[in-house]
């Protein structure tokens, strides 16, 4: 589980675009929950939705999706699988709340932007800058501002996610 502290704040990659209400059963079916090995989980990432995804994805790529991304089960295996298969960042119109927390906790960068999602197409090259709070669609030559994280969450991310936060508070 890598923390934000160690990771860079800029991500550039090709877009894989999906629709609304992508649920965690589609991201990683329950029959794979018997492992917490991220490498094993990554092999089945998005299997329920798009079987070809895992063969097309390259390190650094970005998932772009509509509203309520990650709805359904609380399984942390979902953001783990996405992160491990090489996805550098997920941009969605909105995230389901448990997925949102899980992503922050395990250090999968996520950002919300309605307009960026609307305009983006599979194959577009996008640059996300978390520090500046911008999404730059290099293919479409359009720049978007992202929703800033609440300050409590920024603090969480700054120390490197929830595990580091707890260690710091209890240590």
């Amino acid at each position: 589980m890598k923390s934000y502290g160690e990771s860079k704040m800029r991500f550039q990659g090709k877009v894989h675009k999906y629709g609304i209400n992508i649920n965690t059963d589609e991201i990683i079916p329950a029959r794979f929950l018997n492992t917490s090995d991220a490498v094993e989980l990554a092999k089945h990432c998005l299997e329920g939705l798009d079987e070809g995804f895992i063969h097309r994805v390259s390190t650094g790529d970005i998932i772009v999706a509509g509203k309520n991304f990650g709805c359904g089960s609380s399984r942390e295996h979902a953001p783990l699988a996405i992160k491990e298969c090489g996805i550098s960042c997920v941009i969605a119109e909105t995230f389901a709340r448990i997925f949102y927390r899980n992503a922050i906790n395990i250090g999968l960068p996520i950002v919300e932007s309605k307009q960026a999602v609307k305009d983006a197409q599979t194959g577009d090259e996008i640059l996300v800058d978390l520090e500046k709070g911008t999404i730059n669609n290099l293919t479409k030559k359009r720049l978007y501002k992202t929703q800033p994280f609440p300050s409590f969450m920024q603090e969480l991310m700054k120390v490197g996610g929830l595990i580091e936060y707890v260690k710091k508070k209890t240590g």
């Binding site: 589980m1 609380s74 399984r75 942390e76 448990i98 927390r101 899980n102 906790n105 395990i106 409590f152 996610g161 929830l162 595990i163 936060y165 707890v166 508070k169 209890t170």
Partner: peptide, 17 residues
Amino acid sequence: GMGSTDVAAGFATGKNW
């Protein structure tokens, strides 16, 4: 409902945000 790491923080500290 929360994810595993959030619940682990609960197990460890009896608190969460």
